[in-house]
């Protein structure tokens, strides 16, 4: 069910929510968190779709604040709201707020009246994120703040900037996309021979912030020289291309040459083909919402790992 409330106010929206709950029965029960999505006009649907699918795992209230990315300053203050429940909203309820003019500047005031009582708040910027997320109006009320470095104008720089602005609770999808890679690499090192890694090579697309984070993670955990190559190889695959861990008995290679399949080759073992697809927005969001406490490993990687990696490169 979709309820349109053109030229509305927040109190009218919350009254409409209570009314829908009364009429529809259990709609508003059992929500575990509020997800605020801050996005621009016209870019809402992709994020809402991902949130709806993630809501099967985490029943939540989704508040989408959509503003003009280039405010002309002449727009009249106006709030168009839309409430989606039931079949149109997965296991969640979606409140879409399209704000124009002055009202768009007060993001905190817009959402305060709609937050679920007591429940934790997660803020997600699927597109351009504020410079210091934890100090932005939405970031201050949120327990977890999710950004996506890959969606910024300079993805690598935004990871480097994160090192100085990181606050516990911040997280980035560039890191979430690495989870499968990290699992495979850790599993490969769990098998004999248990030799120390002497050096590491990471290669990936030049615009992939995940490659940088993977290199930083390996640097932080292994404390060995990490070489990271940025290529614009014409294989059509974006993101991370491959990782090579050098050990005395020979290198472990995890290479993604096809779109969704990676090849793992180790000395003395047949090569394995592993399914290693680029993770969808839904998977990343669902994984991030599973834990609502700060991801301290990510904090260490952006604060310490990235710095160590860059110091290494400069000294070479």
């Amino acid at each position: 069910m979709i309820v349109d409330l053109p030229d509305s106010t927040i109190s009218r929206v919350s009254k409409a929510l209570v009314k829908i709950r009364e009429e529809g029965g259990v709609v508003a029960l059992g929500r575990v968190l509020t997800l605020i999505i801050a996005t621009n006009l016209g870019h809402e649907e992709e994020a809402i779709e991902a949130a709806n699918e993630a809501s099967r795992e985490h029943p939540m209230r989704v508040i989408v604040i959509s503003t003009d990315d280039e405010p002309s300053g002449r727009d009249e203050a106006r709030l168009d709201a839309q409430i989606r429940v039931g079949g149109d909203a997965g296991a969640s309820e979606v409140i879409l707020l399209r704000a124009y003019g002055d009202i768009a500047a007060d993001e905190e005031g817009l959402v305060t009246g709609l937050l679920l009582p007591d429940a934790p708040v997660v803020a997600w910027w699927p597109g351009k994120a504020p410079a210091v997320v934890s100090e932005s109006p939405l970031g201050r009320i949120a327990q977890r703040r999710i950004t996506d470095a890959a969606a910024q104008s300079n993805p690598r720089q935004s990871i480097i900037d994160l090192a100085s602005t990181y606050e516990p609770g911040d997280t980035d999808f560039a890191w979430t996309r690495l989870t499968l890679w990290r699992t495979q690499l850790a599993a490969a090192l769990d098998q004999p021979p248990y030799e120390p890694v002497t050096s590491v090579e990471v290669s990936g697309a030049a615009d992939s912030p995940s490659t940088l984070l993977l290199a930083a993670w390996l640097k932080l955990q292994l404390q060995v020289p990490v070489k990271h190559d940025l290529t614009t190889r014409a294989t059509g695959s974006s993101g991370i291309h491959g990782v090579r861990l050098h050990r005395p008995s020979g290198p472990i290679e995890l290479e993604r040459s096809l779109v969704n399949v990676a090849t793992l080759s180790q000395p003395g073992q047949p090569t394995h083909d592993l399914s290693l697809p680029r993770r969808s927005l839904r998977d990343c969001l669902a994984e991030e919402l599973r834990r609502l406490d700060p991801d301290s490993l990510f904090g260490n990687v952006v604060k310490t790992g990235v710095k160590q990696l860059r110091d290494d490169q400069e000294s070479n």
Binding site: R21, E22, G25, L29, G30, V32, D118, A119, P120, R290, R291, L292
Partner: peptide, 13 residues
């Protein structure tokens, strides 16, 4: 992992 959940009584319901 422990997550906060609610048990709800709605007078209107």
């Amino acid at each position: 992992q422990v997550r906060d959940v609610t048990m709800d009584f709605g007078y209107g319901h």
